[in-house]
Amino acid sequence: MSRSTLYAFPTHDVLGNVVAAILIAVLGYTAKKIWTSIRKRNGETRDTSQ
């Protein structure tokens, strides 16, 4: 194994972890915004059960 190959593995591993962390953060933020908008919309509806 050449020296450049030994340096390439950690670089790609760290880059992959950073991309995965960003993707998870974005998905979590998007899910939270959707959940908040659904709860807000449901809270504004009139109660017709009375």
Results as ranks from 00 to 15, higher is better:
D13N: 02
A20H: 03
P10R: 04
A31H: 03
K40L: 08
F9A: 08
R41H: 12
D47A: 07
G28Q: 06
N17M: 12
H12N: 08
M1N: 03
M1I: 12
T30W: 11
W35E: 15
A8P: 00
D47I: 05
R41T: 14
G16F: 03
R3T: 08
S2N: 14
D47N: 10
L23R: 06
Y7P: 00
E44N: 08
Y29G: 06
M1G: 09
K33C: 12
E44P: 00
T11F: 15
K40F: 03
R39K: 11
W35S: 13
N17V: 09
L27I: 14
A8H: 06
Q50V: 14
A21S: 05
D47P: 01
A25K: 00
S2I: 06
I22H: 02
A31G: 09
H12P: 00
N17F: 06
I34F: 10
T11G: 07
A21R: 01
S37P: 00
L6D: 06
I34G: 00
D13T: 14
D47Q: 05
G28S: 13
V26P: 01
V18Y: 04
V14C: 05
T5K: 00
R41M: 12
T30I: 15
A8W: 10
R46T: 12
T36W: 07
T30G: 09
M1H: 01
A25V: 14
I22P: 00
F9C: 04
V26F: 08
V18R: 02
N42C: 11
K40V: 04
I38A: 04
H12W: 14
L23S: 08
T11E: 09
F9K: 01
S37R: 05
M1W: 03
P10I: 08
T48N: 09
T11M: 13
S4A: 14
Y7V: 11
A20D: 07
A8I: 07
K33G: 02
T48S: 07
A8D: 09
L23D: 13
V18H: 02
F9V: 14
I34D: 07
T45A: 12
L27T: 06
T36M: 12
V14A: 13
A8V: 09
L23V: 11
V19M: 07
I38Q: 03
T30R: 10
L6W: 10
